[in-house]
């Protein structure tokens, strides 16, 4: 079955990103397809490579990046939400006159239409948030 996932909270403050990750892992193990994981609201903070948790803690951002690489999962940060919260790729940084970008590997920035498309194309859409 084809799943899409919406993550609406940032890492560490709320459990949503952990639950979404555990769910995604379990779905992949069972042979399901993950059509897209869309990050909205503070969820876009899952996609900054500047995250530096203590060594004995999980690295939530790296975990997403590794998952994307292993399973070719489409990780999408909402552009409007990302701009508000200071998450940018090279293009976005240039366009907005910023001196750096911070997007993590495996993520891309795109519009909210990608969330609607995820709902249309997948068999199930499940939201993890607060």
């Amino acid at each position: 079955m084809k799943f899409s996932i919406l993550v609406s909270e940032g890492p560490y403050t709320h459990q949503a990103a952990d639950t979404a990750y555990n769910f995604t892992q379990a779905a992949l193990e069972k042979g399901h397809e993950i059509y897209r994981i869309f990050f909205y609201h503070d969820g876009v903070n899952n996609g900054t490579r500047l995250t530096t948790p203590p060594q004995d803690d999980r690295n939530i951002v790296n975990r997403w990046s590794e998952l994307a690489q292993e399973h070719e999962i489409d990780l999408v940060l909402c552009v409007a939400a990302a701009q508000r919260r200071g998450i940018a790729d090279a293009d976005e940084a240039r366009r907005n006159g910023k001196d750096a970008d911070n997007i993590a590997a495996g993520f891309r920035i795109s519009g909210l239409g990608q969330l609607i498309d995820a709902g249309i194309e997948a068999d199930r859409l499940i939201t993890f948030g607060d």
Binding site: Y40, H41, A80, A81, G111, L112, G113, L115, I116, D117
Partner: peptide, 13 residues
């Protein structure tokens, strides 16, 4: 507010 933004974008679909 961000829910409303999704609705407005989604309306085009």
């Amino acid at each position: 507010l961000e829910s409303l933004e999704v609705v407005l974008i989604g309306a085009a679909f």
